[in-house]
Each structure stands twice: as C-alpha cells, then as structure tokens.
C-alpha cells in the first residue's frame, strides 16, 4: 500500500496559498464606497440597476468606508474634497482598492487649469484602475471593474501596499498640494 507523499511547503508557500484563497473571495465580493463628487457618478445608476446589474458580479454599494473594499472616485476632486478623500481612504480596512472614473482623475480633464481642482489623483492616493472618458460610458465602467477583478487575480492590484510602503512620498505630495491634510473648520471643532 502506497501512501501519498506530500512535499513540505515552506511558510511562504503556505501564506501564498492562503492569500490566493482570500483573493478568490475578495474579487468575487467587491463592496464599493462611492465617492460621488463629480458628474461621472451619473453612470453608476445604470451600472447598478437592471440595465447592467453590478450585483451579478458580487458588487454592491456600502455605506461606510470601514465596510468597503473599493473607493470609487467618480470625477473631479477639489482641494476640499481631497482632504476628506484621504481621510476616507485611510479609514478603509486593508486590502483596499481605488478606482478612478473619468479623465478628471487622470489629468484634470476639463478642469486642468482650475485653482480648486487637483490634476492627478495617483499623486495622493494609489489608484489601481482608471476608467478613461469624459464621461466613460457604462460599458467602460463595468469593464473597469472586471479589469480590477483580473488585477486582483494576478496580484497586480496592490496599491494599498504601495501606499503603506511609500507613505512618506504620498504624504509629501499631499502636503505640497494641500498645505495641511487635517481638516480645520467650525463643523469639526
């Protein structure tokens, strides 16, 4: 009688296997926090309702940053919202992903010369998937989410690791543009 021989797995291999199992669950159940600051947010209702039905991919909107996996930045970000966005991003539990909709998050779009709107989102928080277009149509939005799932499968969606490793660089960019990241106003004090 022969017994099956198992080769000894090293700790790294075991960790990787667990991580792959976790990735399977993570990419099939993506919960979004929709940070709808810009006009691209209008593409989300058809993506969620019966026309394209995001829920069949396991995606859905979530109410708070703690529960969400994806931070969906739809459109332009003014300086004031960028502060809140950084707060929100740092509150999310890891692993976390960022999806940028529209050309405003890529290079400023039509607001590229505005005094109040930032030009490049990935200088302040790491972005995993960009969906280009002004505004992107709903197929493109859905395609962006499928791309994110592929990226999670192939372990390339590791913006959250990049943020942790290069925290000083991101922080420096945030301070250079915002002056101060902390929010000081009469409603917070």
């Amino acid at each position: 009688m022969k017994s099956t021989k198992f080769s000894e797995l090293s700790q790294e291999q075991v960790d990787r296997k667990w991580w792959e199992i976790g990735d399977f669950f993570r990419r099939n159940s993506l919960w979004m926090l929709m940070y709808c600051t810009g006009c691209c947010a209008i593409e989300l209702p058809p993506a969620m309702t019966s026309a394209y039905d995001m829920e069949r991919l396991g995606m859905g909107p979530m109410a708070t940053p703690r529960q969400a996996d994806i931070l969906l930045v739809s459109g332009y970000l003014s300086l004031k919202t960028l502060r809140r966005l950084i707060y929100t991003y740092e509150q999310m539990s890891e692993p976390k992903y960022v999806v940028g909709l529209g050309s405003c998050t890529i290079n400023g779009g039509i607001y590229h010369d505005s005094h109040a709107v930032i030009n490049q989102l990935d200088q302040y928080v790491p972005v995993d998937v960009y969906v280009a277009g002004c505004m992107p149509n709903t197929e493109a939005v859905m395609n962006g989410f499928v791309d994110l799932m592929d990226a999670i499968k192939h372990k390339t969606a590791n913006g959250w690791k990049k943020y942790r490793d290069n925290y000083d660089w991101y922080r420096q960019n945030q301070i250079a543009s915002l002056g101060e990241v902390e929010v000081h106003d009469e409603f917070h004090e």
């Binding site: 400023g108 010369d113 030009n119 490049q120 960019n173």
Partner: peptide, 12 residues
C-alpha cells in the same frame, strides 16, 4: 488660475 494650478498640483 492656470499658474496657480501648475504651481500647486503635479501635472501628468
């Protein structure tokens, strides 16, 4: 505004 934007925000 363009000069302010170029001075404060990184351009791609």
């Amino acid at each position: 505004p363009r000069a302010y934007s170029e001075a404060h925000f990184p351009q791609r």
